[in-house]
Computed example of a mutant assay.
Amino acid sequence: MAAPTSEVSHHQSILSVKAVAESCIQSVPSKYHFVNDINGSPSDSIPIIDFSLLTSTNLHHRSKALQELDKACVEWGFFVLVNHGIPENTMRSLLDGSVEFFELTNEEKQRYEPKGVLDPIMSGNGSMPNSESHTILAWRDFLKINLHPTFYCPEKPETLRDILWDYSVRVRNVFRRLVEAVAENLELEQGYMDDVLKLDSCFQRFVANYYPPCPQPDQVMGTPPHVDYGLFTLLIHNGLPGLQIQHNGEWFKPDHSPPNSLLVNIGQHLEIFSNGRYKAIKHRAVVNNHSPRISIIIVNGAAPDAIVGPAAPLVERDGRALYRPMEFMESVRAMLTNRY
C-alpha cells in the first residue's frame, strides 16, 4: 500500500517547515505533532551492487553481479549501487540547486502549490492521518518535478534547470541498464520489458525533500512508512542519516553508504511486473535536532500509457497472475490519491 501521505498540501500548510524550524520554536506545533519511535538498527548488510560489473563484457563478472542483484531484489528490495558512472560533482550540484529552491521566499514557492497529485511541478509539505484520523503535517518540505517524457523545471533557481536535465538523462541510462539486468534475471527475452513497458517514453519524476532540524525529533514524522510506485527509485542525500528500511519486520538504518553511491529500491510496478518475485519494501524518513537533511530521489516507471501487469511469460511459468493489469499513469494516480 502506498504511503499515507497526501501529495496535495492545503493552502494553510504552505508556510514551509523550514520557516517554522527557523523561527526558534522550542516545541513542536500541534499541527505537526506525531508521536514516533525514531530508533532503527544499524545495518552494514544492505547489498552493494557494482554497476561496472553488471555492465561488464567479462561474462564471469557480469554473471556474478547478476546473481547478486537478483538476491538483493528478492531479499531486501534495496541495494547500494556503486561505480554507476554519474560524476560526484553532478550529484553535489543537484543537491546544492535543490537547497537553493528551498531557500526561495514562500511567495515564490507558493507558485507551485499542488492542485492535483500529478501536477508537473509541486511544492509543499504534505499531510497524513494520525491514530485519531486527524490530519497532521509532515516535518518536511518537498519539490516534485516531472522530468520525462516531458521535462519541466521551476523558473528559479536558474542554476537548477541544466543540472537537473543532465542528471535526469544520466539516471535514465542507469535505469535502463538495471532493467536489462532484471529482465535477464527474470529469464525474459531481450527487449521484452522495453517493448511492453514502452521505456523509451518512461515516466520519470524528481523529488527533493528538505527535512529541517526539529527540537523534538520523536514528536514528528519526516516521511511516514511507504513503498514507492514505479520500477526503480534512485536516491542520493547530503550525508546525514534519516532513511530507514523495513526488513523482516525491523527498521534498519543504511547510513554508511560508500562515497558517490546511489541507493536503489524497487517500486510497486516492478513488484507487479515480476508477479511478486521482487517486492517493494516499506521505508520512512526520520529527522534530527541539529542539521537539515536533504534527499533527492528519481522515480523511474513505465510510459504513462503503458499497461503494467505481470509479465505474460512469468504468469505462464507461475500458473497465475497475482496482480491485475492497469495503465501506468492511472495506477500511479490511484496510489497517490489513496495516500491519505
Rank of each mutant, 00 (worst) to 15 (best):
R320E: 07
R170F: 02
L262A: 08
G230F: 12
L235V: 15
P154F: 11
P259R: 07
Q110K: 13
H134P: 05
F78C: 03
R62M: 07
Y211S: 05
N300P: 03
V74R: 12
L197E: 06
V74P: 01
S45D: 05
L164Y: 10
D318C: 06
D162N: 06
D70E: 13
T159G: 05
Y323W: 01
L262I: 04
V299E: 05
K18T: 11
D70P: 03
S274L: 03
N238A: 13
I266T: 04
V117A: 08
K18R: 14
P87E: 04
P154S: 10
L199V: 10
R339N: 06
C202K: 04
Q246W: 02
S291Q: 11
V227P: 08
Y192P: 10
P215Y: 09
K115E: 12
N338P: 00
I136Y: 03
P259V: 10
H148G: 00
L94H: 10
Y167D: 01
K156W: 03
V169E: 07
P120S: 12
I236K: 07
S30N: 09
I86F: 07
L240K: 15
H33K: 05
H134T: 15
A3N: 08
P325K: 06
L188N: 05
E7H: 13
P154H: 10
P225S: 14
F51D: 01
I281C: 05
K144S: 01
P149E: 03
E100G: 08
N248R: 14
E68Q: 13
N300T: 09
R176K: 14
A138M: 13
